[in-house]
Design a protein around this nucleic acid. Structure first.
Length: 584
RNA sequence: GCGCCCGUAGCUCAGUUGGAUAGAGUGUUGGCCUCCGAAGCCAAAGGUCGGUGGUUCGAAUCCACUCGGGCGCGCCA
């Protein structure tokens, strides 16, 4: 319909050019109106042309309307306000949406606009050193929702989790598990302040004990002799834990150290994976950082940068000249001790993403990593790829509040609220919904008490309730031995002339546009707001009119309308990863 | 100090490729179940869109400056 209006207006503008009123046409902006009093669509072109025409906007608008061709789909054209041209659609035209929805069902709203472009979305990618906490939940919900939105408009999307299984943190984790295991075997010592202290470390240690009895035990004096003092004893906690890592490797030997290390990694990874699955977040691929080194991809990436002349040696280290590609300073890729930096892994990782055939990459990062964006894009440019094919979406952290007070979170100290806890107390639906209600770059206050309260304060219930209410009407219909003829309703959609009905129909008509905008801009919150507005119109309609009435023609028409509404609520909620219950 | 994000109703937030009287939830106040689910609806009240200046027919939206809050500026990951 928008296209029809656009072509009508273009023809009118050409006429005005011929008449000499204006010299050149401008790009037409035709938008849906916010207020039903302004019709269905509006165009501001008269105001844009006022200057070159040398006449007031309303006069220009009148001139346009005077030469606007007739169209049977348009009932009325008005000039309003400072010079808006408002279009009122003929009723038959707007009613078509009800049939479209009922015919297309779950497919309604989806399209092939993106033509199967191969996209990878990488998100969460939290270090596997402990359970996911509520901060990770936002990235998980956001990433999964963006993925389903993009699939719905025709992208070929893969979701990937990058497993940081190669760094120092992992060694600290392995050492933490081993030390807890020693404790379980009766060895007494002060647990390092810098080690991981969560209860889950004990669980993993207990698993080791069950499987390997005391074969990994060493006496305390062997473990702690000549180890630099920990912080409470006036030492350096970093040096203390690093020495303990080296000692554990030395005492256990390569094989047994890997055994402890892998037990910790596999246990935590399995936990994260299950946690996310229960949250409705499914990955196509779990990509190990360690395999980058194992397959030689890191050295390959650096060699490629070197061959292109983007790497130099300074002070015994290898530097990537990222400033040539817009970064604010050059970055080390190989340290003077010969070890690759985390950034070197990341370069190799992104190179591999493109080599796997993705045309477009989306990384969802916590906002604290924003300083990292420029260097990764620089690396992609230096490797000959287009940096614009990588979108890095930054998600602000959610600040947690409990009892009106900010909850401080730290993985190391073990004093965090896990995503699992949140899911169990709030439910997946509310949690998924709550996380994507706000646009991602917005700082978010997550009130745990409110989210856990299961009260009607939580907006997800409002939308689900609208869906359940419609289902309830259909159940009532059955109980009253009445039937619903979609066919008969279709022939009487013209009876839907109440204000509540035309507003609802107009909102249904806006679904596809809204959903596409949400998908192409990676803004799920647009869909959230739309669904709330749709639910509101349904509730208002419900309170104002009866659906189960004696007049079969009007009844069937109304039932078609609310069933179409139910379908759109269902489709939208599904995209958000939220269920659409028939009863609540 | 430099860079990025944010500042809109008491609170939590929409609205920013410049458009009509700046919207919603929540909270407060007052109404609506002999009627398909009251987890609902209706109404009232609540605003210098952080501030100042600029750009123009028109600015919450764009520009400059400025004030507040968050984050980042390692041969850490």
């Amino acid at each position: 319909m928008k296209d029809t209006i656009e072509s009508l207006l273009s023809r009118a503008l050409e006429q005005l050019i011929t008449d000499g009123l204006i010299e050149t046409a401008v790009a037409l902006q035709i938008t849906r109106t916010k207020d039903a009093a302004h019709g269905d669509f509006t165009c501001n072109v008269a105001m844009m042309l006022a200057k070159q025409a040398g006449r007031p906007p309303r006069e220009v608008a009148q001139a346009i309307v005077d030469v606007l061709p007739e169209d049977e789909g348009i009932e009325k054209v008005d000039i309003a306000g400072p010079g808006f041209i408002n279009f009122f659609l003929a009723q038959e035209n707007t009613l078509a949406i009800i049939n479209d929805i009922l015919e297309q069902g779950e497919r309604f709203g989806t399209s092939h606009t993106a033509a199967g472009e191969k996209v990878q979305i990488e998100f969460v990618s939290a270090n596997p050193t402990g359970p996911l906490h509520v901060g990770h939940g936002r990235g998980a919900a956001y990433g999964a929702t963006v993925a389903s939105l993009m699939r719905a408009v025709g992208y070929d999307v893969d979701c990937e989790y990058y497993v940081n299984d190669a760094g120092r943190q992992m060694n600290i984790l392995a050492a933490s598990v081993w030390l807890r295991y020693l404790e379980l075997n009766g060895i007494a010592f002060d647990f390092p302040v810098n080690a991981y202290k969560g209860d889950y470390i004990y669980d993993i240690a207990r698993g080791l004990q069950n499987e390997h009895k005391d074969t990994l035990v060493f006496p305390a004096d062997e473990v702690f002799s000549d180890i630099p003092a920990d912080e409470p004893q006036g030492g350096d906690k970093e040096a203390h834990i690093d020495a303990l890592i080296e000692r554990s490797k030395a005492l256990l030997g390569e094989n047994n150290y890997r055994l402890v290390f892998n037990a910790a990694l596999q246990s935590i990874l399995a936990d994260i994976r299950q946690d996310l699955e229960e949250f409705g977040v499914i990955y196509d691929n779990w990509y190990s950082e360690q395999t980058l080194a194992d397959r030689g991809l890191i050295s390959k990436a650096i060699e490629q940068l070197q061959a292109a002349g983007h790497v130099v040696e300074r002070n015994g280290a290898l530097w990537f000249l990222s400033t040539k590609f817009g970064d604010e300073k050059d970055r080390v890729v190989i340290r003077d001790n010969g070890q690759a930096t985390y950034f070197a892994s990341d370069i190799a990782y992104h190179m591999d993403k493109f080599e796997r055939g993705y045309q477009r990459l989306i990384n969802i990062w916590g906002a604290d990593h924003h300083g990292y964006v420029a260097r990764v894009k620089a690396a992609i440019g230096a490797l000959g790829e287009n940096p614009d094919n990588l979108d890095i979406l930054l998600v602000q952290f959610a600040n947690l509040y409990r009892g009106g007070e900010r909850v401080q979170m730290s993985t190391r100290s073990g004093s965090f609220v896990t995503l699992r806890e949140l899911r169990e107390e709030v439910g997946t639906d509310a949690a998924r919904f709550f996380y994507v209600m706000r646009k991602c770059e917005q700082h978010m206050d997550f009130d745990l008490d409110l989210a856990k309260s299961q009260s009607n304060d939580n907006p997800v219930y409002y939308i689900q309730y609208a869906h359940a209410r419609i289902c309830s009407v259909m159940r009532q219909l059955n109980e009253k031995q009445l039937t619903h003829s979609i066919e008969n309703g279709r022939e009487h959609h013209g009876l839907l002339t109440e204000k509540h009905e035309t507003e609802l129909i107009s909102k249904l008509d806006a679904y596809k546009d809204t959903m596409h905008k949400a998908a192409f801009n990676a803004e799920p919150h647009l869909l959230v707001h739309y669904l709330r507005e749709l639910a509101n119109l349904l509730h208002t309609y419900y309170n104002a009119h009866q659906f189960i009435i004696d007049d079969a023609n009007l009844r069937d028409a109304r039932l078609n309308l609310i069933n179409a509404t139910r379908q759109v609520l269902h489709n939208g909620l599904l995209l958000l990863g939220v269920s659409a219950p028939e009863t609540m």
